[in-house]
Design a protein around this nucleic acid. Structure first.
Length: 257
DNA sequence: ATGGCGTGTGAAACACGA
């Protein structure tokens, strides 16, 4: 069973690519971020026609997240946002799929370490840590998938010295990532691949994709109880080569049945 | 040093991303 995450940077623009990718890969669970559409505009009919069910938490212009599941799988106990954290920005959605708690998150970008948005990012990360700790108490089998906007290690950055201390790489962000790990989670990609420069995002500008100047900021964390079932975790760079691509590509985790 | 591209809003120029 495969679980994937993809920041699509506008579901309206990227829907044909999402449908094609699902048809090609037959992925069972796909978490999407940056829908950039309000709740009523979600393309449910098109996704249902492709054989998928969906739960989504939309927001006009910014943010917005969704979980798609291939039938006959279904979404149970859907929760939008983080309980006990009142946030206007719609960045989190959770559901139980085939006994696994799936949490889809679009982490705050933060803009720059001296920006008020960075302070919001640190607050949001603390709230997420509290939320995930609570979810783990109820669901030992858990996945946290999404656009983390954190490059956890120098290995995950095209120019580690140039980025040192900057947003996405700063010590407080990396410490927040490690606090999630300390809850009893593993970076599933690093269970299988120790290489440098394995990126999931490349800036649209300056031919960054062609030069492989990117960052690994999209992740799938897997709980200790689920880890023995992990078979593979792979980055699919193919959609970045299409016309009008998202700047992020999908990451897929395969679990044994 | 700055912005370089792409998307949304709304109908030009700006906000935002990372």
């Amino acid at each position: 069973m495969r679980f994937a995450t993809w920041n699509v940077n506008s579901l309206k623009v990227r829907l044909p690519q999402v449908l094609q990718w699902l048809a090609d890969t037959q992925t069972e669970v796909l978490c999407l971020q940056e829908l950039k559409i309000d709740q009523p505009s979600f393309p449910l009919a098109e996704l249902e026609a492709a054989g998928y069910r969906a739960a989504w938490f939309g927001q006009k212009t910014y943010n917005g997240v969704a979980i798609l599941v291939r039938q006959p799988f279904s979404l149970d106990d859907v929760v939008c946002g983080m309980p006990d954290y009142d946030d206007e920005q719609r960045r989190v959605i959770a559901a139980t799929v085939n006994g696994i708690r799936v949490i889809c998150a679009y982490f705050v970008n933060g803009e720059a370490v001296d920006s008020p948005k960075y302070q919001y990012k640190l607050t949001w990360l603390a709230q997420l840590e509290r939320y995930i700790a609570s979810e783990l108490q109820q669901h030992s089998q858990l996945l946290l998938l999404g656009d983390y906007n954190i490059a956890p290690d120098d290995k995950d950055v095209c120019d580690p010295d140039g980025w040192r201390g900057k947003v996405l790489c700063s010590a407080p962000e990396r410490e927040a990532f490690q606090r999630l790990i300390a809850l009893g989670l593993s970076d599933s990609f690093r269970l299988f691949n120790q290489e440098w420069r394995q990126f999931t995002w490349w800036d649209y500008r300056a031919l960054m994709f062609r030069r492989n100047m990117g960052m690994r900021i999209d992740h799938i964390l897997i709980s200790d109880a689920l880890k023995p079932r992990a078979i593979a975790c792979e980055i699919d760079k193919a959609p970045r080569k299409l016309l009008r691509p998202s700047d992020h590509v999908p990451v897929t985790l395969t679990l044994a049945d």
